[in-house]
Structures are given as structure tokens and as C-alpha cells.
């Protein structure tokens, strides 16, 4: 909203990331305004109703967005180290795989895959070795927590085969 006239101003090489963050903050504020506006007031006897605090938060987010944009234009936003995205993708992939496979393949296999993919992200490339190891380790954990301590952890083919 406050970003409308921004692209033309180019004084000290604005920090693109800071501007994106500012836009995201403003968008969140917008979503709050939009969602809360359809609530009925229903404040009862207090003049602070269910909508007051979210509106206040949204206003503060807009102020923070403007502040962030100003810092971005002045170029004195945070410095950052270069990031390597390959390893991050491996770990995120592992978490996504566990999430999707958990209910069909059970805790041990899904978590074993997460284990191996995380290790891959940190440089252990031998998946043929880390996947079986991860599954065995997860199975031991599953046995302790699900069988001995009665924590409910999803069972899959492997767990049903052995118990």
C-alpha cells in the first residue's frame, strides 16, 4: 500500500530483500483487516472487543513495514551471509517426505527417510547406508516410546510385521 511509488526512487541502491519483507508485513496487516472486518463486534460490556486487538496489531505491522522499507531504501538493513540452498532443500524435502509418508508407511520408515535426507543435507551422501540405518534407529525409538511408554505413534507395515 505504501509501496506504490517506490520503484522510481533509486538513491542508494535499495535492499530488495528489505522491501520484500516490508511488503509481506503490509500484506499480513491487510489480511488481518480483511478477516477481522467480518467479525461481529459482540464486545458485550467491554469496549475492547474481539476486533480491537487485531486491528491494533495490524496498524503496528503497517508502521513496521514502513520503517523496514525506509531502512531498505537507505541501504542500512541487516547484512547477510551467503546461503547454500542445496542442503536446505534436502532437509526440507526430508521433513515433507516424513509428513506425507507417516500415515501410510508408519513412523519408522517415514522418520528413517527424514533421518537419511537430513544427513545427506549435512554431507553424508551414502543414502543406501543411511536410509536403513535411519529406519533401524527410528524403529528402536518407536519400540521404546510406543510399546514401552504407550505414546501413540503411527504404525506402518514394518511395525505391524514385527509386533
Amino acid at each position: 500500500m505504501s509501496r506504490g511509488d517506490s520503484p522510481s526512487v533509486e538513491t542508494r541502491r535499495p535492499d530488495r530483500a528489505a522491501l520484500i519483507i516490508a511488503v509481506v508485513l503490509a500484506l499480513i496487516a491487510g489480511v488481518i483487516f480483511w478477516d477481522v472486518s467480518r467479525l461481529t463486534g459482540l464486545a458485550g460490556y467491554s469496549q475492547v472487543g474481539p476486533t480491537t486487538v487485531p486491528y491494533a496489531i495490524a496498524c503496528c505491522l503497517i508502521v513496521l513495514a514502513i520503517w523496514t522499507a525506509v531502512e531498505g531504501f537507505r541501504g542500512d538493513f541487516a547484512e547477510r551471509e551467503p546461503q547454500q540452498f542445496g542442503p536446505v532443500a534436502w532437509v526440507v524435502g526430508g521433513l515433507a517426505a516424513q509428513m506425507l509418508l507417516l500415515n501410510t508407511l508408519g513412523f519408522s520408515i517415514a522418520t528413517g527417510i527424514l533421518f537419511a535426507m537430513t544427513a545427506r543435507g549435512f554431507g553424508k551422501r551414502q543414502l543406501w547406508l543411511t536410509i536403513p540405518f535411519g529406519i533401524v534407529a527410528s524403529f528402536v525409538v518407536w519400540t521404546i516410546f510406543a510399546k514401552v511408554l504407550q505414546l501413540s505413534l503411527p504404525a506402518g507395515p514394518l511395525e505391524r510385521l514385527l509386533f
Binding site: V140, V141, T143, I144, V148, L149
Partner: peptide, 15 residues
């Protein structure tokens, strides 16, 4: 540590 824990549990309580 969890192996240690498991053996304590299995031994002490034998669930």
C-alpha cells in the same frame, strides 16, 4: 541413553 532407559524399564516393570 534410551537403550539404557529401555533396559531399566523392561527390567523394572516388564510391561
Amino acid at each position: 541413553k534410551h537403550f539404557f532407559l529401555a533396559s531399566i524399564l523392561a527390567g523394572a516393570l516388564a510391561l
